[in-house]
């Protein structure tokens, strides 16, 4: 199955002219790339703050996909959901950064591997 060949058919309804030609496929592509970057970053980096930023990146990627599908299906459920997710993400960011600060105070380092003593 060739995903690129079916891409034009994924457009539904007229798009704003400035963004003419951009279909659901493109949005999902951006979302996938962002998610992939976030995942790779989370897996490869050791710095807790970078890792946290990577999770945010994955979060936003999922948000883009949700909005794209929402637009594609012409209802606002997805968009509404993303607004809530962003609110929660903001609160969660504060919490996560606070945790990072606490962890840093314990070991004077941001290296995630320094917390390996929690292994089973």
């Amino acid at each position: 199955m060739n995903l690129l060949s079916i891409a034009p058919t994924l457009a539904q309804g007229p798009m704003p002219t400035e963004m003419g030609g951009a279909t659901l496929f493109h949005y999902l592509l951006v979302s996938a790339i962002m998610f992939g970057l976030g995942l790779i970053g989370f897996v490869t980096r050791r710095n807790l703050i970078i890792m946290f930023l990577c999770t945010e990146l994955m979060f936003q990627a999922a948000g883009i996909a949700l909005i794209a599908f929402s637009r594609f299906h012409l209802n606002h459920t997805g968009e509404t959901f993303v607004i809530f997710v962003l609110t929660v993400a903001a609160a969660e960011a504060a919490l996560a950064l606070a945790l990072v600060v606490l962890l840093f105070r314990r070991k004077e380092t941001l290296d995630a591997s320094s917390w390996q003593d929690l292994k089973g």
Binding site: R45, A112, Q116, L118
Partner: peptide, 16 residues
């Protein structure tokens, strides 16, 4: 038990 190495990245990788 061997899977639980305490490496955060590893957990993420296996989840992914």
């Amino acid at each position: 038990q061997t899977g639980q190495r305490g490496v955060l990245n590893g957990y993420a990788l296996s989840m992914a």
